[in-house]
């Protein structure tokens, strides 16, 4: 592959992303935010960054996890599981199972079209919001019980280092596998006619992609809640070199801004900022033609 030097605009983008992330981190330290609340979302950001890279090779799901409704489904499952159990393994298992099933539905039933996914996601979010209000009000609980779920603070509350270590290991492992099998996965992304393998192998890779996606989204929801929902849009809008680095900095920086907002104004503001930020970027991406030729828009 021919390499060329970074363009001026790419250097500027990278510098701005680095500066903003560093500034948000420093502000959080100055505000004396708990180190766990600063560090653990970075695991979620790493997981979501790996997911965005994987999403490039699985173009069937073109939206962020907020727009697809995966974040809402995850939040609902966590809330429900927390009502019945305090066992962290059971709670994590329930989240993973629900996200895997929902991911299979997104990949298998919906067309690979951002409009279809976003409408489906909006409906899912509406339904989840109604159920959550019913569950919390019905059980006489405060809506503030959603804070650890929406901001991904359950692992910090649970304590222990096994879960964060395992999550970080899964992220690194999946990232390495994706790098090693990159060519095969890229062939997979183009469809069966361009895949040098059997139909069964193609379907097998599809199933593995859904599984890997489910794992990464579960880790993101557990460790960063809904604060990573800008990743896919940033990635689609920024087409320069070192896009993985820009994306990681953007997601990590955004999680830190959410932490900062929560410390300063409360968790509803932080959750709202994540939600609105994600939708604003999605709207920009949605209305921008990132591909000139319509033959590619609906594979």
């Amino acid at each position: 592959m021919r390499k060329s030097a970074l363009k001026k605009s790419e250097v500027i983008t990278l510098s701005i992303a680095s500066a903003l992330t560093l500034a948000a981190l420093t502000a959080n330290l100055l505000l004396r935010v708990s180190p766990l609340h600063i560090v653990l979302p970075l695991i979620g950001a790493g997981a979501y960054c790996a997911l965005v890279a994987l999403n490039e090779l699985h173009p069937r799901i073109p939206c962020d996890y907020i727009q697809t409704g995966e974040a809402a489904v995850g939040a609902l499952v966590l809330l429900g599981a927390l009502m019945f159990s305090e066992n962290r393994i059971a709670i994590t298992g329930a989240l993973l199972t629900a996200i895997l099933l929902y991911g299979a539905y997104l990949s298998g039933v919906l067309a690979p079209d951002k409009k279809e996914h976003s409408i489906n996601g909006a409906l899912a979010q509406g339904a989840v919001a109604v159920i959550i209000i019913f569950l919390t009000a019905g059980a006489g609980r405060e809506l503030s019980s959603l804070e650890p779920i929406l901001l991904g603070r359950l692992p910090a509350a649970w304590g222990g280092s096994a879960l964060p270590a395992a999550a970080a290991a899964v992220v690194v492992l999946l990232f390495c596998i994706a790098r090693l099998a990159g060519n095969k996965l890229r062939m997979y992304s183009h469809g069966i006619p361009f895949f040098a393998g059997s139909r069964m192998a193609w379907a097998g890779i599809g199933a593995l992609m859904i599984a890997a996606r489910g794992l990464l989204i579960s880790i993101t929801i557990l460790f960063a809640g809904i604060t990573c929902g800008i990743g896919v849009s940033v990635n689609r809008l920024y087409r320069g070199r070192l896009s993985a680095a820009v994306n990681l900095l953007a997601i990590a920086g955004f999680t830190q801004v959410s932490v900062f907002t929560a410390a300063l104004a409360g968790f509803w503001y932080a959750a709202g900022l994540s939600f609105i930020g994600s939708y604003i970027l999605f709207a920009v991406y949605y209305n921008k033609r990132t591909h000139l030729y319509d033959r590619h828009q609906k594979p």
Binding site: E56, L57, P59, P112, R186, S189, H190, G191, P193, F194, H291, Y293, R295, H296, P299
Partner: peptide
């Protein structure tokens, strides 16, 4: 047949 991943 057309490749499905336009970002390649």
């Amino acid at each position: 047949a057309v490749p499905h991943n336009p970002d390649e």
